[in-house]
């Protein structure tokens, strides 16, 4: 039993690491991309389309597709992270776009008319007013990433999925639950924490 609990701790941390790294990368890509899309309406169809297509590929298949891809593919964590990032892009991208476009046009108009530069408009007006919507996107991305990351084990990415796949292979319900239950709690915890932030960041 001590073996299992030691492994549980390791795999939980590994899972958490997978999720955090993937989310950090996804945010670093999707947030600026979302801002860019508010300035370049013509690109919206393409970028949102790409993110949409990524989301529609079944997760197990996406992991599989990536294995033969050079540089980002192969067996292991790197491939898993690439897949998780691709999944997390859409909600963050979409919500960044929606949040910023949702700013009252009159507010934007008066910001510009008062002589705010593009950067001031973004950081002092648009981002604070969009923060809540953007955070909601991050929250959705986080919760789904925690779930999807269990599949990373299928391509040697580690994490709590190791228990699940091992449990399935050996028809051992205890092992499956050892992976599924901590993942579920992690998702609930993340949801609660980010939900709190979301309320905290709500504009006025």
């Amino acid at each position: 039993m001590s073996g299992l609990s030691g492994e549980l701790l390791d795999l939980t941390l590994e899972h958490l690491l997978l999720v955090l790294v993937s989310l950090a990368i996804a945010i670093a890509i999707a947030l600026p991309a979302g801002v860019l899309l508010t300035r370049r309406p013509g690109w919206r169809v393409w970028l949102l389309g790409f993110a949409n297509v990524m989301q529609t590929i079944p997760s197990l298949a996406l992991f599989g597709f990536l294995i033969p891809v050079p540089l980002i593919g192969g067996i292991g964590k790197r491939t898993a992270i690439v897949a998780l990032v691709l999944y997390a892009l859409l909600p963050i991208l979409r919500n960044t776009l929606a949040g910023i476009l949702g700013v009252d046009p009159a507010v934007r108009e008066s910001a510009v008319a008062m002589g705010m530069t593009g950067r001031q408009l973004l950081w002092r007006v648009e981002m604070p007013l969009a923060a809540r919507t953007i955070l909601a996107g991050v929250r959705i991305a986080t919760v789904t990433t925690i779930g999807t990351a269990t599949i990373a084990a299928a391509i040697g990415g580690g994490g709590l999925g190791v228990f699940i796949f091992r449990g399935i292979a050996s028809v051992d319900t205890k092992q499956i639950l050892a992976g599924a239950i901590p993942a579920a709690f992690m998702a609930l915890g993340a949801d609660a924490v980010l939900g709190w932030f979301e309320r905290k960041f709500s504009p006025a």
Partner: peptide, 17 residues
């Protein structure tokens, strides 16, 4: 130019935050 000119619109556009 914009900072030298005051501007008031019907919707006002006060910053809600």
């Amino acid at each position: 130019l914009k900072r030298r000119i005051g501007y008031v619109i019907q919707e006002i556009g006060l910053f809600p935050h």
